[in-house]
C-alpha cells in the first residue's frame, strides 16, 4: 500500500493481534448462547442433541417474567432520571466557566471508580438508618447514582461538539431561550439524549451488585439469575435467558454507541 504514509503503514502482526483480542473478548461470551441449544442439562462437548426447549420454558416461567418486568421498570425510570440529571450537568459543565468545576466533575464521576460493594454497603446503611424498606425504589436510586456519570460523559461529548454560536445565532434571530432550546439545542443533542437513555437502561438492566444490597423481596433479572445459579438443574434455563439478555444488550448498546460516535470518520492526509 503506497497510498498510506510512512507512519500509518499497515502492520500485519498488529492486525492479527487485534483479531485475536476481539476473539478473546467475544468467544467466551458466545458459549452461553451455544449451550442454550444443548439438549442435556450438563455442559459438555460435543453437543449431542439440539433443542429449543429451554427457550420455550421461559414463557411459562412466571417468577422470571416478573423479574424481567421489574428490571424493565427500574431500567426505564433510572435511565430517564439519570439522563435528565445528566443533561443539566453536562450543559452546565461544558457551557459555563465556574470556579471549582473540576472537583465537582470529579465527585459526579466518582461512582465510575468506587467499587460497587462500597456504594452498595453505604447506601444500604443509609436506607436502613433512614428507615426505608429495601425495594425496587431503592434499587432505582442506586442505579441513578451509577448511571449519571455515564450519562454525563455521553452528553458532554455531544455538548462539546456543539458550537455555542448556534444558540447565539438563534437568539440573534429573535428566538427566546425556550424556543431556542426546542428549535436548536434539542434537535442537536437529541441523538446524545437517546444514546444516554439506551446506555443507562442497559447498565441498570444488567446491574447486579447494587441491586443485591438494595433489593427487597422483588428481584430484578440479575438477582433472579443469581438465585438460579445455585441449582445446577436450572442451568439450561439460565443459559437461554442469558443468551437473550446478551443479544438484546448488544443491540441496544450498539445503537447507543453508534449514536454517540456517529461523527464522520476523520481521515488524515
Amino acid at each position: 500500500m503506497k497510498d498510506v504514509s510512512y507512519i500509518n503503514r499497515p502492520n500485519r502482526p498488529l492486525f492479527v493481534y487485534a483479531v485475536l483480542f476481539l476473539a478473546f473478548l467475544y468467544v467466551p461470551v458466545l458459549f452461553l448462547p451455544l449451550f442454550s441449544f444443548n439438549d442435556s442439562i450438563y455442559i459438555a462437548f460435543p453437543i449431542e442433541n439440539w433443542t429449543l426447549q429451554w427457550y420455550r420454558d421461559m414463557f411459562d416461567n412466571e417468577p422470571m417474567i416478573a423479574a424481567l418486568m421489574n428490571s424493565i421498570r427500574v431500567g426505564a425510570v433510572a435511565s430517564v432520571l439519570s439522563t435528565f440529571l445528566g443533561v443539566f450537568g453536562a450543559k452546565a459543565v461544558t457551557r459555563y466557566r465556574m470556579p471549582g468545576r473540576d472537583p465537582i466533575v470529579t465527585v459526579i464521576m466518582a461512582p465510575l471508580v468506587i467499587p460497587g460493594i462500597i456504594l452498595g454497603v453505604a447506601l444500604l446503611i443509609l436506607i436502613n438508618r433512614v428507615g426505608i424498606t429495601p425495594s425496587l425504589y431503592t434499587i432505582t436510586l442506586g442505579h441513578v447514582l451509577v448511571c449519571v456519570p455515564f450519562s454525563m460523559a455521553t452528553l458532554m461529548t455531544r455538548f462539546e461538539g456543539f458550537d455555542k454560536s448556534m444558540e447565539e445565532a438563534s437568539a440573534d434571530l429573535g428566538e427566546n431561550a425556550w424556543w431556542t432550546f426546542w428549535r436548536v439545542t434539542f434537535p442537536m443533542v437529541f441523538p446524545g439524549l437517546l444514546a444516554s437513555v439506551l446506555l443507562c437502561f442497559t447498565i441498570s438492566f444488567d446491574e447486579f451488585i447494587l441491586a443485591f444490597f438494595l433489593g427487597g423481596t422483588d428481584p430484578t433479572l440479575p438477582l433472579y439469575i443469581w438465585g438460579q445459579l445455585r441449582f445446577p438443574q436450572r442451568l439450561p434455563n439460565v443459559l437461554a435467558l442469558g443468551a437473550c439478555i446478551l443479544v438484546i444488550s448488544f443491540i441496544v448498546v450498539f445503537i447507543s454507541q453508534w449514536l454517540t460516535h456517529r461523527e464522520p470518520d476523520s481521515t488524515r492526509s
Binding site: 500509518n8 492486525f15 467466551p28 461470551v29 447486579f208 442469558g242 444488550s249 454507541q257 470518520d265 481521515t267
Partner: peptide, 27 residues
C-alpha cells in the same frame, strides 16, 4: 492503523463491557 470505520472498531472493542457483568463472569 485503522483509517476507515474506526467507529465500528471502537464499538466492537467496548461493547462487551456494557453487557451483563454477571453473565460475563458466569461464562
Amino acid at each position: 492503523h485503522v483509517h476507515r470505520r474506526k467507529m465500528i472498531w471502537i464499538i466492537l472493542m467496548t461493547l462487551p463491557f456494557w453487557t451483563s457483568y454477571l453473565l460475563r463472569i458466569f461464562t
